[in-house]
Structures are given as structure tokens and as C-alpha cells.
Amino acid sequence: MYITKSKISIIGTGMVGSSIAYALMISGLTSRLVLVDIDEKRAQGEAMDLSHSASFIKPIKITAGDYADCKGSQIVIIAAGANQKPGETRLELTNRNVEVLNSIIKPLSKHCPDSIVLLVSNPVDILTYVTHKSGYFKNGRVIGSGTVLDTSRFRYLIGQHCQVDPRSVHAYVLGEHGDSEVLTWSSASIGGMKLLDFCRLAPGANENWKKDIDYKVRKAAYEIITRKGSTYYAIGMATKRIVEAILRNEKSVLTVSAMINNAYGISDVCLSLPTIVGSRGIIRTFEPKLSTEEITELQRSADTLKKYLKNL
């Protein structure tokens, strides 16, 4: 069922949070949007700026507020925290952003115990794990944006190489949303044809095309941060896509980050696998058939995350 009178709250109105707010506003998915930020004036300014487009969009009420104003939200999106600096990895943000997160989840749970909590701040897998382990929110209702954006980058680059609409590319990025992520070439396809067979027929195909795409997917954020300071438009759209799947109860398969227990020998860590997402949040996580090398890489990705978790 498509919920037309939904309420969504966004915690953190920096470039990422405001881009998410803008994407949600123009999508028409929600009728109420609440913006919360430690800098109250910033949240108020964003709410005012967005609201002034009222005559161009579907009816929506956008306000700035505090945690109490988030009550009744179907989804609360957490986009608060420090951004990556040039040359800094997502995992190097851990201690700073876990501290920010801990200041949010307890007061938020008081007013929104039944909401789906969608983590977007980095390192997203670590923050999703911390939120899940806090015990404040119901099982399956803590979701990280995971590798939804990485998967889109992967499909975009494959589409460019093969001269095919990226929406016709079926390929996933799994594991950490970060340097250890796993591009699953073995299961990728276009039009029912194995991707590797299809791409060999593409103009300009050569032995280095896979390495080139792998590098561009893995280093995309760094390249953008070097050029403009931060990434926010694409993650805004990726977050909108997750919200859409939840509000419309689409049961879409998305590579969101969630608690993993006994998948590929991996347990007690949050990372991305193909997952059915609907109105209840996480419905089911899949274990697609991967190559032996990809499984090893996925296990290594989980170990990388666990090392940082041990140091919290």
C-alpha cells in the first residue's frame, strides 16, 4: 500500500540531509517533512527555502523542529555527522560520528520507538550496527543506506561501457560501503545474458575494462570530494529510492545495510546484501550465488568492519 499521508524526519541538515530533503520534496512521496539539526537556525533556513517552492510541487508541510516533533514519523533519516575530508576513508570517521550518533538515538527513541530508522551518515555500516545494538528500535527497522549508491555507480559505469541503459543492468555491490566493498561480476547480467559475455561484444572492449570500472566505483567518492568537497546529490537520490520502497511497500530488492547472521559464514556485523525492503523495513536478505573469490572478499570486508567495531 502506498502511504500518501506519510511523515518523514531528517536529523542533520548539512549538504547530505538537505539534498535528501530536496529529493523527497520533489518526489511527492511524503506530505510532512521535519528537519532537525543541532544548528537550529540552519534547519529553519533549509525548511524556509524548501517551503518557498510550494507552488511548484505537490502539497507538503516542511518544518524545522526537535526530536519531539519527529513523533509519528514513518521513517527517521539520520544524516548528521562529520563529512569525509580529502584523503580520509569512511572508516576513519568512526569515533567522531559514533559520538554524534549516540547523542541522537536515545532521545530519538523516546519519541519514535516504532519508526524505521534509516542511517545515511558514514561509516554507515558501523553506525547501523551501533543503532541496532542499542536495542531502542524494533528488529528489522534499523536500515543503513549501504551500497545502494555504489550499486548505482556500478550499473552506470557498466551501462556506459556496454552502451546500455543502466536501468537494464543487473549487478550488485555488496559488503562494506567503503574500500573493501565487493563488485559481484559473476552474477551480473544484461537482458538475461551474462554480463561478461555481453561486454566482450561491446565496442572498445579490452582486458582492462573491468579493472577500470572497479577502480571508478571504489574511488568515486574520493574523486568527487577532491573536486567539490563532498558528495550529496547521488546519496540524496539513493535515500529517496529506499524511502520510496518503504512507503509504497514495494518489496524491492536493494543493497541496504542490515544486521547479518550466518550468511556466507558471516555473523554479527552490518553490511550490504540483496535485501527485500517494504513497509516493515527489512523483510528478507538473500545470499546470491557468488564466486569463491567474491565470497572470500565479502568475508574480508566483514572482518574489516569488525576490526573497527572492536575499537569502539
Rank of each mutant, 00 (worst) to 15 (best):
S53T: 14
A54Y: 14
A54N: 10
S55L: 15
S55V: 15
K58T: 15
K58M: 06
P59Q: 11
K61E: 10
K61R: 11
I62Y: 12
I62G: 04
A64L: 12
A64E: 09
A64W: 09
G65V: 13
G65Q: 09
G65I: 08
D66E: 15
Y67K: 03
Y67R: 02
Y67P: 07
Y67F: 15
A68K: 09
A68I: 12
D69S: 11
C70I: 10
C70G: 01
G72W: 11
S73L: 14
Q74W: 12
I75S: 05
I75C: 04
I75A: 06
V76F: 15
I77S: 01
I77L: 15
I77W: 07
A79N: 03
A80R: 00
G81P: 06
A82H: 03
N83Y: 04
N83Q: 07
N83W: 00
N83R: 04
N83S: 11
Q84T: 12
Q84D: 02
K85G: 13
K85R: 14
P86D: 03
G87C: 04
G87I: 01
E88L: 03
E88H: 01
T89S: 14
T89G: 02
T89I: 07
L91T: 00
L91N: 01
E92N: 08
L93I: 13
L93K: 02
L93C: 03
L93V: 07
L93T: 02
L93F: 09
T94V: 05
N95P: 04
N95L: 13
N95V: 05
R96I: 15
R96K: 15
N97I: 02
V98C: 12
V100R: 00
V100W: 01
L101P: 02
L101N: 00
S103K: 14
S103E: 08
